[in-house]
């Protein structure tokens, strides 16, 4: 047998071996090789389904397969203490009710709910700038953020989300928390601006405890999340535009020591209405996941 024939036989043998190994590794999910979670066909089919139900997809998303895990969080006690310290230092009158504690000063009142939600109401408002409703978004943002930072009202790692405006000089600035640039949609800051004044602030700040890495799993694709949302909402009578679809973490507010929050696909409709689809189960996330009977304790 000459060397050439021996090489040929080895080539055939190794080619066969590689086919066998490849089959064992990738079958039945050969789609993984293409490294996309959403194929062009799937995307087109989803867009058609959305259109049939009067939804327009006007958002882009990452089509590669993605994984995520649970994130354990606890109420952000540091932020709360810093904020309340200012009220107490200024001589705030404290009043406790069954579900909230009030810290009253002449010019503002802080309401701390059992769930951890903090609201600050300004009696006369905090003046920002003349004609603030017509300010550029960035300029308005920087003015607001400057005030928030000066007054210990801005938790760390906060990211600007979006701005809502209406014709009555009313502006709502929305922020969410983030962990290593991954949004924690459950942690939020909202600033209410009315007639050039900050009228109220609402903060729900969470302290990330740990990422539950041993429970890392592949998340559902964004197209599957969109399909699930449309199934849940049904066909729309008016045309609705899907403005954003992002992967992050979300859960309701709990009066608890700490809790796990799951990854979600957040879908923003018409620029302001938000829905959260659990990225593991595909279910629409509700405000609370604890069954009613278990909440009675």
């Amino acid at each position: 047998m000459n060397l050439g024939r021996a090489k040929l036989i080895l080539i055939i043998a190794f080619a066969g071996l590689n086919i066998f190994l490849g089959y064992q590794l990738f079958w039945p999910d050969f789609g993984r090789l293409a490294n996309v979670a959403v194929t062009s066909e799937e995307l087109e089919a989803t867009e058609r389904m959305l259109e049939d139900n009067n939804y327009i997809l006007d958002a882009s998303f990452d089509r590669s397969p993605q994984t995520s895990d649970f994130l354990t969080v606890s109420p952000d006690q540091n932020f709360r203490q810093k904020l309340l310290y200012q009220f107490i230092k200024s001589g705030a009158a404290v009043e406790e009710t069954d579900d909230a504690t009030y810290y009253r000063l002449d010019e503002k009142t802080a309401v701390v709910h059992l769930s951890g939600l903090i609201q600050v109401f300004y009696n006369k408002g905090v003046f920002l700038a003349e004609d603030s409703v017509n300010l550029e978004e960035n300029e308005l943002k920087s003015q607001v953020e400057e005030y928030l930072q000066d007054n210990a009202l801005m938790p760390e790692e906060l990211m600007f989300d979006y701005l809502e405006k209406n014709e009555d000089d009313f502006i709502l600035l929305n922020y969410y928390q983030a962990l290593d640039k991954t949004p924690i949609f459950a942690g939020q800051l909202k600033v209410v601006i009315e007639s050039d004044h900050i009228k109220a602030i609402e903060v729900y700040s969470l302290q990330p405890v740990e990422r539950v890495l041993h429970r890392e799993m592949e998340v559902i694709s964004p197209t599957e999340a969109l399909s699930n949302l449309v199934t849940e909402l049904g066909a729309s009578t008016d045309k609705r535009v899907i403005k954003k679809i992002d992967l992050g973490y979300f859960s309701g507010e709990y009066d608890a020591e700490k809790w796990d929050i799951p990854p979600v696909w957040r879908i923003v409709l018409d620029g302001y209405q938000k829905y959260y689809i659990n990225a593991f189960t595909g279910n629409l996330e509700k405000d609370t996941v604890i069954p009613e009977q278990l909440q009675e304790h």
Partner: peptide, 12 residues
Amino acid sequence: RLARVIEEKDGG
């Protein structure tokens, strides 16, 4: 693995 844990203030 899909169940999330909520640790209550009373340890539950």
